[in-house]
Every structure is written in C-alpha cells, then in structure tokens.
Amino acid sequence: MEITMENKEFNKNIAYKKAEKRVKEIKTYYYLVIGFLIVGYFLINKNYNGNLADIAKNYTVWMVILWGIFLAGYGIYLFVPFFNNWEERKTKELMNKQLKNK
C-alpha cells in the first residue's frame, strides 16, 4: 500500500512539473507577442513609407513579417495538441523500445 502512495505522489510531482513547464512556455510566448507588437509597430512606423511597390527594398519590413511568421509557427507548436505532444509521444516510444531490447 505504501508503494502505491509513493507512486501517486511521484506521478503528481511529474504532472505538476509538466504543468509548470507548459505555463512557463505559454507565458514566454505571450511576452514574445507583446514584444513583437511593440517593436514591430515602431520599426514599421519608422521605416515604411506607405508605398507597397517599394516594400521589396525595405528590409526592415521583411524582418518584421518573418518575425511574425516565426511567432505564428511557435503559436501553432504551443497550442495545437498534435504538434505540442510529439516530444512526449517520441519519448514514450523510445522508452518502450529500450525496455523491449533489455
């Protein structure tokens, strides 16, 4: 009986650590988005002259666009369950493979 209680406590600690890590990742993402909005606004406001034909020559605008694409990809990684859980699935797969080989 005591082993089961220790196992439950261990599982609770693991679940808590995973939840804590997830919250930290989401919080970091929100900080990145806020920074993108603030810095991107000032960069675009200072460097974009309103001419869409001239956007190809304006590398600062392209930098902000690529930064936005990166943030969108990171958001998909964080919030779409299929992409977020691949690390855990792969870890379990490799652990099972190791256990079978022993």
Rank of each mutant, 00 (worst) to 15 (best):
M1I: 05
M1Q: 11
I3T: 08
T4H: 08
E9I: 13
F10R: 15
N13K: 14
I14N: 10
A15Q: 09
Y16P: 01
K17E: 15
K18Q: 10
K18C: 04
A19W: 09
E20I: 02
K21C: 07
K21I: 07
V23R: 13
V23E: 13
I26W: 05
I26M: 07
Y29F: 14
Y31E: 11
Y31Q: 09
L32A: 13
V33L: 14
I34G: 09
I38E: 01
V39P: 05
G40V: 01
G40K: 00
Y41A: 03
F42A: 02
F42W: 14
K46F: 07
Y48V: 00
L52G: 03
D54Y: 05
A56F: 11
Y59C: 03
Y59Q: 12
W62M: 04
I65S: 06
I65E: 11
G68K: 01
F70P: 00
Y74D: 14
G75A: 02
I76G: 13
L78H: 01
F79G: 04
F79L: 15
F82G: 03
F83S: 14
E87M: 08
E88V: 12
E88P: 03
R89P: 05
L94F: 03
M95N: 09
M95L: 15
M95Q: 11
K102F: 14
K102Q: 09
K102T: 12
